[in-house]
Design a protein around this nucleic acid. Sequence first.
DNA 1: CATATGTCCTGAGAGC
DNA 2: TGCTCTCAGGACATAT
Length: 279
Amino acid sequence: MPELPEVETMRRGVASVAGLEIRRVEFPRIKARPIVVSPSRETFRRKVRGRKIDGVGRIGKRVVLSLDDGHSLILEPRMTGLVLLADPPSPEHLRLRLALAGKRNRELLFWDRRGLGCVHLLTPQQLAHLRDHKLGPDALEISAEQLRERLKRSRRAIKVALLDQAVIAGVGNLYASELLHVAGVHPRRRCDRLTIDQWRRIHQAMQEVLHEAIRYEGSTLSDGTYRNALNQAGGYQNAHRVYDKAGQPCPQCQTKITRIVQAQRSTFFCSQCQRQSRK
DNA sequence: CATATGTCCTGAGAGC
DNA sequence: TGCTCTCAGGACATAT
């Protein structure tokens, strides 16, 4: 589930590793299938060991460790991956350990219960390709005009389009539902039928919701998987308006929240606050 | 090209 | 109680 707010929280939580050297690279021996790594493990280990971490950044839903030789170490949590400086939730799903030099000996861990996440070492050219061609502008950087320009001719439903990382990077299933509720836009509304005012409201709601969620350090859902870098739960789940609240009253108007499925994913909305005119 | 669908994965929870 | 089944949704591969 980690989306922009959760990944940004992970990034901030491990930002203190900047300046440290990676002394050892370990792939713990676990029963589960090893984490997907490119290039090969041997090459990865050889190229990462001994490098200094110059900075800790984020691209969309990925944490980026900039190394002192120009390469970038990409940590991609996908559904259940965590980037940790503390002990992981369980030992058996630890996928990668980076032992760091420093005053106190520290470790940066990648833990993933389901194993859909992955780790990559990218050249500057590969990083540029990821940033400029595979992903759209960051959800916190994009302007309302840019957002509309990118989608105004699309026939897709706005909820589905917001999940397309090539259009806009960082929004996932949870925050798409939440921000459309704040914007008062029906999730099935086609992009090419949204008004300029609706685009402005979507953009504004996106900024508000994402910043608010970062302030609360992300959402830890009922399965409890998401944790910050110190293995602590986030707090934004208590502020959710519609996500996973089918049948419960809308916080604005008390109408029961509706659940629908779009592109094989759950969407939650209020049929009163997010009225549908024409799709 | 744009859009839609299938796939990977594990553990929680439902239902019998 | 204990078993089987379904579901959750990141990104990518493949299909339409």
